[in-house]
Amino acid sequence: MEFDLAIELLQKGLKKQLPGQNAQKTMSPLPVDPKRFDFKFSENPRKGAVLIFIYPEQGKAFFPLIKRPTYTGVHSGQIAFPGGKMEPEDESLSVTAMREAWEEVGILPEEVKLIGPISDLFVPASNFLVSPIIGYSEKKPLFVPELKEVDRIIETPLELLLHLETRKQRMLEVGGKIKLDAPYFDIENEIVWGATAMILGEFLQVLENGRG
């Protein structure tokens, strides 16, 4: 997809009502964890944000995903957007998203033009309420991975997500005991599933809504 067209469609799509849970659920593992969509703020979830960052590569729209290193934790080795938890000094979740993207992959905050947020998503495994923020730059950044937090950066063409063969489904074993029937995006032979896939599900619907 052309970069200019992608930005135009996203700007138009965000002026309409967000697709929200209906779009998120299209990429939700089964059985659906009801806590994702019926959590209580009294449970005091941690606030966090991720940046869906669109940039041009030879006129086409791309965005970065990251692969987390292998570590002792619930998100070990998973594919994610640059992002993390909100710090006390962050003025907003948009600031959180841009700060984390700068720390993890070297995207300079001053080069990010914000388009806006899409729907929050609760991640029960880590008790995070994640706010996805869409932004863009008219030039490709010089990516620099933070080696303690990023195993690799996956520069992903937006067009790839529009191909039906990119969407797949399989049984995944999580934590060595839980089996889930998980829809996912097959990107560079990586399984992009869970919260990241659910966020992408809504992102793609916003993009589609921009055509109407």
Rank of each mutant, 00 (worst) to 15 (best):
L200I: 14
A6L: 03
A197P: 06
L30C: 10
A101V: 06
P82V: 00
L10Y: 00
W102Y: 15
R99A: 07
L164P: 08
V130S: 12
V123H: 00
E104P: 00
M86C: 07
E43G: 02
E155V: 11
S92A: 12
K67E: 13
L129S: 05
M198G: 04
Q58Y: 15
L10I: 13
E43I: 00
E2Q: 15
V123I: 14
P88K: 11
V150G: 09
A125H: 03
L147K: 14
E43W: 00
N44G: 01
L93G: 04
E2F: 03
L160D: 11
L9M: 13
I118V: 05
L108Q: 15
I7W: 13
H75S: 10
D181R: 15
E57L: 15
K148Y: 04
L18W: 06
E8S: 08
N44Q: 02
M27H: 05
P117G: 01
Y136K: 13
V144D: 08
E91W: 07
I54F: 11
K25G: 04
L108D: 14
L65H: 10
E111S: 15
L158A: 15
L180V: 15
H163M: 11
I52G: 00
G77W: 06
V105A: 00
Q58D: 15
E208M: 06
D120L: 11
E8H: 11
V144Q: 08
Q169T: 03
M27P: 09
T196C: 07
S137Y: 12
L180K: 15
R36N: 06
K177D: 01
W193N: 10
I66A: 08
N209C: 03
V123D: 02
F203Q: 04
E43S: 10
E188H: 09
L14S: 08
E165T: 07
I191S: 10
N127G: 05
D33F: 06
S42P: 01
M27Q: 10
E91G: 14
L5Y: 05
R211L: 11
Y71V: 10
F37M: 11
E2I: 01
A97G: 12
A125R: 07
E57V: 15
K12C: 04
P19T: 03
M1E: 10
L142V: 14
L164V: 08
R211N: 14
